[in-house]
C-alpha cells in the first residue's frame, strides 16, 4: 500500500462569487521512503496540492470539489478534526519556504519544539529530546541554541529548527514546500544534505515542492511536473531530466542556463504562465508550445502511461525524445 495516494483531486477557491479551480484532477502516489518532487511554476497548483494533504487550506475560501486523498489508506477528506490532528504532525509534517514566518517570534525555539512533542509524543516531551533533535539537524551548540529566539538565528538555522520540529513527531512523510527558496545557495546545499541524510536515517518519504529543476536532480527519486492545475508528466528522475517527454518539461529544461555548459542563447518559452481561471481550452500548454498541432487547441489530452514507469499528458510526445533535439 502506498504511503500517500491522491486520486483526481480537485480544489477550488471562491473568488468574486465564482469558484475558480486551482487543482484539476491531480493523481499521484508516494511509497514509503520515496522522494517525489512536484515541480511547477507559480500558480500551477503545486502548493495547493501539498497543503491539501494535511487539509491545511482554509475552507472556505477553498473547497475540495472532487477526488480522494489517502494517507496509509485513510481518507483525509472525510476525516473529523480530531482524526486530522493525529495525521498532521503524527504521520505528515510540513516545512515551508519562510522559516521566519513559520516560527513564533516571541517564544524560544526550544519551547516551540517542546510544544510539538507535548502534542504528538507526550512521553518524549523533555528538554533532552529537544536538544537531541536540534543536534540531529546539525545545529551547533544545541543546548544554548534551544534558548535562542528565532530572530537570533540566521535563515539557514531557522530552517533547521523548522526541520527539527517537523521530524520531532517521527513522521512517515515530510512535505517540504520550497524549503530552500529563501536561502543562499551555500545554505541551500546544507539543507539539501540534511534532508537527504535524515531521509536515510529515519526512512521517511519526502514530497518536495519546487520550481527549481536543479533541486530535482539533487534529491528526487521520481518527479511530477505540473502546469496549469494538472500533472503533465511523471517519470523517474533520470529519465525525466535526460529524456523529457512532455514539450513543457523539455522547454523548461532548455530555458535554464546550466553551469559549466554555456550555450550561445537560451531557448525562451514565449508568453506567460496562465493563472487559474484563465486556462485555455484543449491542451493548456498549447498557446506556448513549440510543437503545437491543430488538434491541441481543441482536444484536452489525458495523462497516459508510457514505457519506463512514466506518464505524459501529450498525444504527440515521442517517449525518450532528448533535451537537445
Amino acid at each position: 500500500m502506498p504511503l500517500l495516494s491522491i486520486h483526481d483531486l480537485e480544489v477550488e477557491f471562491r473568488l468574486n462569487d465564482r469558484w475558480v479551480r486551482a487543482v484539476d484532477g491531480v493523481s499521484f502516489s508516494i511509497e514509503p521512503g520515496e522522494t517525489l518532487c512536484l515541480v511547477g511554476e507559480s500558480g500551477c497548483g503545486k502548493s495547493v496540492t501539498a497543503l491539501s494533504i494535511g487539509r491545511l487550506l482554509p475552507e472556505p475560501p477553498a473547497r475540495y470539489s472532487g477526488g480522494r486523498i489517502e494517507v496509509e489508506g485513510h481518507d483525509i477528506l472525510s476525516m473529523s478534526p480530531r482524526e486530522l490532528q493525529r495525521i498532521r504532525g503524527g504521520v505528515v509534517s510540513y516545512v515551508f519556504q519562510e522559516p521566519a514566518a513559520a516560527l513564533n517570534p516571541v517564544f524560544r525555539v526550544g519551547s516551540q519544539i517542546l510544544e510539538t512533542l507535548q502534542i504528538h509524543r507526550p512521553a518524549k516531551a523533555t528538554q533532552a529530546e529537544v536538544v537531541r533533535l536540534l543536534g540531529d539537524v546539525g545545529i551547533p551548540d544545541p543546548e544554548r541554541r534551544a534558548r535562542s529566539y528565532p530572530h537570533e538565528l540566521s535563515g539557514g538555522m531557522q530552517q533547521r529548527v523548522m526541520i527539527a520540529m517537523a521530524i520531532a513527531t517521527e513522521p512517515r512523510l515530510l512535505i517540504a514546500d520550497e524549503p530552500t527558496t529563501a536561502l543562499d545557495v551555500t545554505i541551500q546545499a546544507q539543507i539539501l544534505e540534511l534532508l537527504k541524510d535524515l531521509k536515510q536515517r529515519l526512512g521517511m518519504a519526502i514530497l518536495l515542492i519546487t520550481h527549481n529543476l536543479g533541486l530535482v536532480g539533487e534529491i528526487a527519486d521520481r518527479v511530477a511536473v505540473m502546469y496549469a492545475g494538472q500533472i503533465v508528466e511523471t517519470a523517474p528522475v533520470g529519465s525525466l531530466l535526460h529524456a523529457p517527454a512532455h514539450p513543457y518539461t523539455r522547454a523548461l529544461i532548455q530555458s535554464v542556463p546550466e553551469l559549466g555548459h554555456p550555450r550561445e542563447r537560451l531557448i525562451a518559452i514565449p508568453g506567460t504562465v496562465p493563472m487559474p481561471g484563465t486556462w485555455p481550452a484543449g491542451c493548456r500548454f498549447a498557446p506556448r508550445c513549440p510543437v503545437v498541432q491543430d488538434d491541441c487547441r481543441t482536444l484536452a489530452p489525458s495523462l497516459k502511461s508510457i514505457a519506463g514507469n512514466r506518464s505524459v499528458r501529450c498525444p504527440h510526445s515521442a517517449p525518450g525524445s532528448t533535451a537537445s533535439s
Binding site: H211, N212, S255, L266, A268, I269, T272
Partner: peptide
C-alpha cells in the same frame, strides 16, 4: 517565473 526568465536574459 522560470519559464519567463530566459526571455529577459535573452
Amino acid at each position: 517565473d522560470v519559464s519567463v526568465q530566459a526571455q529577459v536574459v535573452n
